[in-house]
């Protein structure tokens, strides 16, 4: 093989890479917060109300979970303008990521809510808790603590999947890589470097999520989060 690797070339594109990393982090953090909040609301709605609400939430979850993220992005970015809603690439990425993550979070949190034993709720009522207190202290917080590791795995997967947003011209990290490649023609080197950055981001995100878990739910949950490599959300 006569090819010589030249990683030095990439150093001059430091700014492009840094701005890509920054947008990837911004999109991930915002979609995690919004998606998780939406997941809590939808999973709660679903458990409180039956009938039409439950059907609609389930339909939403199933549709999103059974179609590719790339196509969801295409519909948001290319499809919505046809309906009169024009959004920029960054906004489209954030909308797509939030819609996607909300569906997965709903499914995970639903499983947590269903795992709360009926006797716990009865015990809460027997202690004179109001419905809201029962919901808050007996149902949702223990449910979240139980599924937190699975949620975290999903968050990391979402951060990694944000690379797909480069296909709709969002200038995040993967798009930075494509740009540098088109300028320097050092494709393999660029993608090696960017892949390592993603790996570092994934490890950092996992560590941060474990700390957040420690702060929110205490030590037991944090340890499970740190050791969980890929808990199947399904």
């Amino acid at each position: 093989m006569s090819y010589t690797f030249q990683f030095g070339v990439i150093a001059q594109y430091q700014d492009v890479i840094l701005s890509g990393i920054w947008l990837t982090i911004k999109l991930s953090v915002m979609s995690i917060i919004l998606g998780c909040a939406a997941g809590i609301v939808l999973a709660s709605l679903r458990s409180v109300r039956g009938g039409v609400v439950r059907f609609l939430v389930d339909a939403y979850v199933e549709i999103i979970r059974n179609t590719p993220f790339l196509i969801q992005l295409f519909i948001v970015y290319f499809g919505l303008p046809g309906l009169g809603l024009r959004v920029g690439a960054d906004t489209a990425a954030l909308i797509g990521m939030t819609i996607n993550l909300a569906a997965y979070s709903t499914e995970i949190i639903r499983a947590g809510i269903e795992a709360v034993h009926k006797s716990q709720i009865e015990a809460g009522e027997a202690l004179g808790f109001t419905r809201f207190q029962v919901y808050r202290h007996v149902i949702i917080i223990p449910a979240l603590a139980k599924v937190y590791p699975a949620l975290c795995s999903q968050f990391v997967l979402m951060m990694l999947a944000s690379s797909i947003c480069s296909a709709i011209s969002t200038n995040e990290l993967a798009a930075s890589a494509a740009f540098i490649e088109s300028q320097s023609y050092r494709s393999f080197e660029v993608y090696i470097v960017v892949t390592l950055i993603y790996l570092a981001l994934a490890l950092c995100l996992r560590a941060v999520l474990a700390l957040v878990g420690l702060w929110l739910f205490g030590r037991r949950v944090a340890r499970r989060t740190a050791t969980a490599v890929a808990e199947e959300a399904a």
């Binding site: 990391v156 990694l160 690379s163 993608y191 790996l199 994934a202 490890l203």
Partner: peptide, 8 residues
Amino acid sequence: IQGIPVLM
């Protein structure tokens, strides 16, 4: 493998 995007 679980820490890098499929795209990469």
